[in-house]
Amino acid sequence: MAARIFFLFTLGYFLSYFYRSANAVLAKDLSRDLGLGPAELGFMTSLFYLAFAAAQLPLGGLLDRVGPRAVTPALLLVAALGSVVFGLAQSFAVLALGRSLIGVGMAAALMGSMKAFSLWFPRTYATVSTLLVGLGATGGLLAATPLALLKEALGWRGVFLLGSGVVVLVALLIYLGVRNTPPGVPWPQGGARVSLGEVLRNGRLLRVAFLGLAFGGSFLALQTLWAGAYAYHLGLEAVAVGNLLFLYSGSAVAGFLVSGFLADRLGTARVLLASALLFALGIGLLSLKLLGPAYLFLGLFGAFNILTLTQARELVPSHLVARGTTLVNLFAIGGTFLLQWGMGMVVGTLGYGAAFAGLLGLLLLALSLYLPLLRPTRTRG
Rank of each mutant, 00 (worst) to 15 (best):
273 L>G: 01
283 I>A: 05
267 G>F: 09
290 L>I: 01
284 G>F: 13
282 G>R: 06
255 G>Y: 05
266 L>M: 15
281 L>N: 03
260 G>V: 08
273 L>D: 07
283 I>P: 02
267 G>W: 00
277 L>D: 06
261 F>I: 15
285 L>G: 06
268 T>S: 14
270 R>E: 12
259 S>T: 02
271 V>W: 05
272 L>S: 11
269 A>V: 06
262 L>Y: 11
284 G>M: 06
267 G>M: 07
254 A>K: 03
274 A>G: 12
274 A>V: 15
273 L>W: 13
283 I>Q: 07
274 A>F: 12
274 A>T: 14
254 A>D: 07
255 G>L: 02
287 S>V: 08
263 A>M: 08
275 S>Y: 09
289 K>Q: 15
254 A>W: 01
264 D>M: 09
262 L>S: 00
275 S>W: 07
261 F>S: 12
261 F>G: 03
290 L>A: 15
265 R>T: 12
288 L>I: 03
274 A>E: 01
258 V>Q: 07
264 D>V: 01
283 I>T: 11
266 L>R: 14
266 L>A: 15
260 G>F: 03
275 S>Q: 06
254 A>P: 02
259 S>Y: 07
257 L>M: 13
288 L>S: 13
262 L>C: 08
267 G>A: 07
291 L>N: 05
284 G>A: 10
279 F>A: 04
290 L>N: 04
288 L>V: 10
267 G>T: 10
282 G>C: 04
265 R>S: 14
273 L>V: 12
265 R>Y: 08
283 I>L: 15
262 L>A: 15
271 V>A: 10
268 T>D: 02
263 A>N: 11
291 L>G: 01
287 S>N: 14
255 G>R: 07
269 A>W: 03
255 G>P: 06
282 G>T: 02
264 D>L: 08
258 V>M: 04
276 A>Y: 10
292 G>N: 05
266 L>K: 12
288 L>N: 00
289 K>P: 00
260 G>K: 01
289 K>I: 01
283 I>D: 07
292 G>K: 03
289 K>F: 05
267 G>R: 06
